[in-house]
């Protein structure tokens, strides 16, 4: 899983570079617009360590934001699975709120909480929260009739058992959703840093943008991609281990 994600990223990144250099040489663009390979390698060596530290900073915020989102989405999703007015309210609210581009309210968060850690965390968590919530609600609201029937008719069904059955039957879907939400959390954090924060790889990209330094941006993109691939690969492995462990006890 992990190695597949990494080499898939390498292929995509190299294809991207290939397109970029094709454009450069076809349109005869200067090194100022698209740097040459030598410039790129030089910049890579110069900023590598600083950017690694920035990416680690960003992924830390993204991971914490994602953990908070997953936890909240599971709690609210479990409550929202019910066919009561409260469950319906949560579903309707989630569908409506997720339709709004969360990133558009980022400036309000920066105004209220400043340009530090908390703002980045909040935006990261909010961006990946609603997609996870909708998936959890959809999984938890769908009865697994073939399994649940016995427990219902014999009066053994408790909410814990219901959640356990539905989670177990949809573990692959849940793992995919959680793994996919890592991209959203990372994107949320980078967007937050890009808008107004004072740390992280998004902040470094913003500076590189002001300097029109594509080599720095390409270096940052490489580090973001490789880090995210490793993180998603690890999440998939964790999901696989959870399923294996659950099915064998």
């Amino acid at each position: 899983m992990l190695h597949r994600r990494i080499y898939q990223f390498f292929i995509i990144y190299l294809l991207g570079l290939l397109v970029l250099f094709s454009v450069k040489y076809l349109l005869d663009l200067s090194d100022y617009v698209i740097p040459g390979l030598e410039d790129l390698a030089q910049t890579f060596r110069t900023v590598f360590l600083r950017y690694v530290s920035d990416v680690v900073d960003t992924i830390s915020v993204a991971v914490i934001g994602q953990v908070i989102s997953v936890f909240m989405a599971i709690v609210v999703g479990v409550l929202g699975r019910q066919t009561t007015w409260f469950g319906s309210f949560i579903k309707v609210a989630a569908y409506n709120v997720q339709a709004y581009p969360i990133v558009a309210i980022a400036p309000i968060i920066f105004i209220l909480f400043g340009d530090g850690f908390l703002s980045r965390l909040l935006i990261a968590a909010m961006i990946c929260y609603f997609p996870i919530l909708l998936s959890v609600i959809s999984i938890m609201s769908e009865p697994v009739h073939d399994i649940e029937h016995f427990y219902r008719v014999t009066g053994r069904m408790r909410w814990q058992l219901e959640v356990k059955i539905r989670a177990f039957e949809n573990l692959n879907k849940l793992t995919t959703v959680i793994s996919g939400s890592a991209t959203l959390a990372m994107a949320g954090t980078i967007v937050a840093e890009f808008i107004a924060a004072n740390a992280g790889i998004g902040y470094s990209i913003r500076i590189a943008l002001y300097q029109s330094d594509l080599a720095k941006i390409l270096t940052a993109l490489f580090l973001i991609g490789i880090t995210l691939s490793v993180y998603q690969g690890l999440l998939e492995i964790a999901g696989y281990l959870v399923k294996k462990g659950w099915a064998s006890h």
Binding site: I147, H149, F150, V153, I165
Partner: peptide, 12 residues
């Protein structure tokens, strides 16, 4: 009680 032939037991 009503039982039918497509019911399953959880696989955990």
């Amino acid at each position: 009680l009503y039982s039918y032939n497509l019911e399953r037991l959880p696989d955990w």
